[in-house]
């Protein structure tokens, strides 16, 4: 059986809020290492990969591999019944028909119990190769969100160009063009504003802004975001969570004529 207790319901709330417009039904794969999810969007352009390691939970118990097939819209409805600071416990049998959620208020003596009906989801798992990326950019997640939002007003796509010490986001639209350049920036006083660009070779790739704007819904999960790029492979957008857990998005690049 599965029993996984989260100190703060907000983590799961934010994860589901961040991915539910991209994927609708997905399996939460539970085993002794934690709870994982991998799902493509309908058009097979983007892939979501979430890992909540067992250390994220306290306690965490899962004796067997259990796949919880959940409709994310339903999951969101139930998670909205939890306060952000509630303690959240997920429970399921070894061959479950439902997943149970218990929300406990730490301040009040209130316990809320919900069940969500599970579904059989035949999901393909893709093998994501280990990649040495040519460029890795770490920047404030809010900054990345703002860039994507701003440029999406002008164009459908953005070119991300990484070169020594600088990354440029460029778009060309019907009404005009836009470009935002960021340089390496590190401040002891405001480390949350740091930008770090690691580069082994210059990279330039074009991506759909619609998907990037969607990924940025995860900005509330982490103050910083990591963008990993190599020529002719999908972009990795990673939000790191506590205990080595993560929410990752992969986006296939646009292909030139």
């Amino acid at each position: 059986m599965l029993e996984a207790r989260l100190e703060q319901a907000s983590i799961l709330k934010k994860v589901v809020d961040a991915i539910k417009d991209l994927v609708q039904d997905c399996n939460f794969d539970c085993n002794d290492s934690g709870i994982a999810l991998q799902a493509m969007d309908n058009s097979h352009v983007a892939l979501v990969s979430m890992m909540l390691k067992s250390d994220t939970f306290s306690p965490f118990r899962c004796d067997r591999n259990i796949a919880l097939g959940i409709n994310l819209n339903s999951f969101q409805k139930v998670l909205r019944c939890a306060q952000n600071e509630d303690i959240l416990t997920l429970k399921a049998d070894d061959s479950p028909d439902v997943v149970s959620l218990v929300f406990e208020s730490s301040e009040q003596d209130r316990i809320s119990e919900y069940d969500i009906k599970l579904m059989d989801i035949d999901q393909e798992h893709l093998g994501i190769p280990d990649t040495e990326y040519a460029a890795t950019i770490t920047m404030p997640s809010g900054e990345f969100q703002r860039i994507c939002r701003d440029l999406s007003a002008l164009s459908e796509s953005v070119a991300i160009e990484a070169e020594k010490n600088a990354v440029k986001f460029v778009c060309n639209g019907d009404i005009g063009n836009g470009a935002i350049s960021l340089r390496n920036h590190s401040s002891v006083e405001k480390p949350e504003q740091n930008v770090n660009i690691e580069l082994s070779e210059p990279v330039a790739l074009t991506f759909s802004l619609k998907y990037l704007v969607n990924f940025c819904k995860a900005s509330g999960l982490s103050g910083s975001v990591k963008l990993c790029l190599s020529n002719e492979v999908p972009l990795l957008v990673e939000y790191e969570l506590a205990s080595n857990s993560y929410l990752r998005f992969y986006l296939a690049p646009k292909i030139g004529d």
């Binding site: 493509m40 058009s43 097979h44 352009v45 983007a46 892939l47 393909e124 798992h125 893709l126 093998g127 994501i128 190769p129 759909s208 492979v233 999908p234 992969y250 986006l251 296939a252 690049p253 646009k254 292909i255 030139g256 004529d257």
Partner: peptide, 14 residues
């Protein structure tokens, strides 16, 4: 989708 790459062309099925 002309112009848009497919993620399955990069990550094979397991």
């Amino acid at each position: 989708r002309p112009g848009q790459g497919n993620i399955m062309n990069f990550f094979g099925k397991k």
